[in-house]
Design a protein around this nucleic acid. Structure first.
Length: 610
RNA sequence: CGGGACGUGGCUCAGCCUGGUAGAGCACUCGCUUGGGGUGCGAGGGGUCGGCAGUUCAAAUCUGCCCGUCCCGACCA
């Protein structure tokens, strides 16, 4: 049993001006956290208790499928050099030197370290599969920390790594994580969705994110209310309605038309009296390519970094999805072209760029201009495009006939109300319309493949005595993000409420008048009984007015409150459920059993049967 | 990194434009009061005005540089 009078719970009547999102304001006001620097926070007793409960759930569930490790947070350069990520992680990695001048970094993830160990220790297929996890502090020098604990530079992550002999094994390890993650987030009371995700620069084959819908989130999720399809916007596709094609004019060949001042899509559509869907939009980028030195050819040295021109073409009413684009061309970074680069690659100015007359490279990011055409332009006819000449456009442009490309790929973001891309078992298309919502990512699982086991030199002998490279998966959960997401999904003007499973305390006993000895003693006795019953109880024994205690109790996230007040004389107390703000009078000798029952029903305290 | 805003007791802010004794509310301490939704009254303590330099007889206020924080865009648990 804990006493409020002795605990350090510095609640704030007002939130600091810096706090913008609900979870940030309430974490500060409720005395869970205090800021130390940009994206760096002290965790106070209430916050730490809640995080500990989350960690306990994660640990309990992860132990069902894996084994806990604890790797260092401070790491030597070599493994990162070996994987190539010392160079590619760039500014996001905190780096430091020791007294001897040796390079070190703070761990932002641990693929390299786990895999090095696997490579050193694993010898035989008989030792596989292995699932190794840890709960560790991670450091990332985020360019823009924000929104309290949502995006920070130091955070706690559960990260796990699976090693399997083959793809079938990896599928199983992946599915085990999928199942355990669902149990974890369910026990933490999160309303989450699992979505298809971009597997990113790490080069995975399959990837799924666990997302909690909230406006504070930074990701956009497209989902279908009919069939349940859900995908990160970086991955989502849709079925587009057919477009009514324009009639060709003249001889049907591309025709140069003077379009003075029509630089924007809307101007062009207006000028030609066409829908923007019939105009070809161009967005021109420079893409960064990481080259690995060809050691076999005797060319050691630092990895190379080169920038290459990339022209993207898509419907005038569509937007480029830069993540998809990067994935399509295999680049590491993008920036938009400068005016000089535009004239170099297109020989034309912004606003009048078009695909006709370009010489696409045969492979992405070679010397020259990589031309990427969005799939939605495939099979289209008689379109309008920039002529690469100031104040001129072309009409009657037919993709494939009038211009070629390096790549035809899905590089656009889907929009709301576009049709769901799924098909039913009988092959009929899903009738749903996509909805796009903001969400925060609390977990991510993905199939890594051989990238790290290969580069870190992990090998085992297979059943035939042949040396093979284990296949890996990598899986993360953001501990603080679980707390943040839980607060985002359950708050009101007065504060927030957590499920008993992750709340710092399950129940607070509020003695409405501490100067009344009878009430104080009744509160003490009740709190002791709740404690004996195995509930995490906080006794508010402070010499404060009832109103102050009620306000504080409503603020700090505890799911149940028992008011010990006047009615005690009649053998009654009030049980208040924070989530619903409802109160019931209960006999003093029945309230412990009732709270226990409520917690068992709604508190998510028990483990879910495997 | 690009764009915007801000920095004054623990918190929220005023004062700055137009230079001249550093303020309010909340919080804190003490006394009384009150005792079911942040009681009321009284008395107190607490501030290098983010830092450095400059202008000036005089700088929280004007100028320059730096530091820090937040918000909007490109990255991720």
């Amino acid at each position: 049993m804990h006493r409020w009078s002795r605990l350090f719970i510095p609640t704030l009547r007002e939130a600091p001006a810096d706090a913008e999102v609900a979870s940030h304001k309430f974490l500060l006001r409720a005395g869970y956290i205090r800021q130390l620097g940009a994206g760096i926070y002290n965790y106070l007793p209430l916050g730490q208790r809640s995080l500990n409960k989350i960690i306990a759930i994660v640990r309990e569930e992860m132990d069902l499928i894996g084994q806990e490790f604890f790797l260092p947070a401070i790491l030597p350069r070599e493994p990162w050099e070996q994987s190539g990520r010392w160079a590619t992680m760039g500014e996001n990695m905190f780096r430091l030197k020791d007294r001897k001048g040796a390079d070190l970094c703070l761990g932002m993830t641990h693929e390299e370290i786990m895999t090095t160990m696997a490579g050193n220790e694993l010898r035989s297929y008989k030792q596989l599969p292995q699932i190794w996890y840890q709960i560790q502090t991670k450091f990332r020098d985020e360019p823009r920390p924000k929104a309290g604990l949502l995006r920070v530079r130091q955070f706690t992550m559960k990260d796990s790594y699976s090693f399997d002999i083959d793809m079938t094994g990896l599928d199983k390890s992946y599915d085990l994580h999928d199942a355990v993650y669902r149990r974890i987030f369910t026990r933490c009371g999160l309303k989450f969705v699992a979505v298809e995700a971009d597997s990113g620069a790490m080069g995975g084959s399959q990837s799924q994110e666990f997302m909690v819908y909230t406006n504070a989130g930074e990701d956009l999720i497209a989902s279908c209310p009919v069939c349940g399809y859900a995908a990160n916007l970086e991955k989502a596709t849709s079925r587009l309605d057919p477009v009514n094609e324009m009639e060709a004019t003249g001889d049907g060949k591309p025709e140069l038309v003077s379009t003075p001042g029509c630089a924007a899509i809307s101007d062009v559509a207006e000028f030609f009296k066409i829908s923007p869907a019939s105009d070809i939009k161009c967005v021109a980028y420079m893409a960064l390519k990481h080259g690995t030195p060809d050691k076999a050819a005797g060319k050691p040295g630092a990895p190379t970094e080169t920038w290459h021109g990339v022209a993207t073409f898509l419907r005038g009413d569509h937007q480029v999805n830069e993540t998809k684009l990067l994935g399509a061309v295999g680049g590491a970074d993008l920036r938009t072209m400068q005016a000089e680069e535009l004239s170099q690659f297109f020989n034309g100015p912004a606003g009048f760029l078009g695909p006709v007359g370009l010489s696409p490279t045969s492979k992405p990011l070679d010397e020259g201009l990589t031309v990427v055409v969005d799939k939605s332009l495939e099979g289209r006819k008689n379109l309008v495009a920039g002529a690469n000449k100031l104040d001129y456009h072309l009409r009657n442009v037919v993709p494939g006939r009038d211009f070629k490309w390096t790549l035809l790929a899905d590089i656009r973001s889907v929009n709301e109300v576009e049709a769901c891309p799924q098909t039913a078992h009988d092959g009929s298309p899903c009738t749903g319309k996509l909805v796009v919502g903001k969400a925060v990512e609390v977990g991510h699982i993905f199939k890594l493949g051989y990238r790290y086991s290969e580069s870190m030199g992990a090998r085992v002998l297979d059943v035939n005595g042949k040396e093979v490279t284990p296949i890996m998966g990598s899986y993360g959960i953001g501990i603080e993000r679980i707390l943040t997401a839980a607060i985002e999904q359950s708050n009101d003007q007065n504060g927030f409420w957590l499920p008993a499973s992750i709340a710092p305390f399950t129940v607070v006993v509020t003695v409405t008048n501490a100067s009344d000895v009878a009430l104080r003693e009744a509160g003490e006795k009740l709190a002791a009984e709740l404690d004996t019953a195995g509930l995490d109880v906080l006794l508010d024994d402070r010499d404060e007015r009832a109103g102050v205690k009620f306000k504080d109790a409503d603020l700090v996230g505890i799911p149940y409150r028992i008011n010990v007040g006047k009615k005690v004389a009649a053998g009654q107390v009030e049980l208040v459920t924070r989530a619903t703000a409802t109160s019931v009078d209960v006999a003093l000798d029945e309230v412990v059993a009732l709270v226990k029952q409520r917690v068992e029903e709604d508190g998510l305290l028990g483990a879910i049967p495997a």
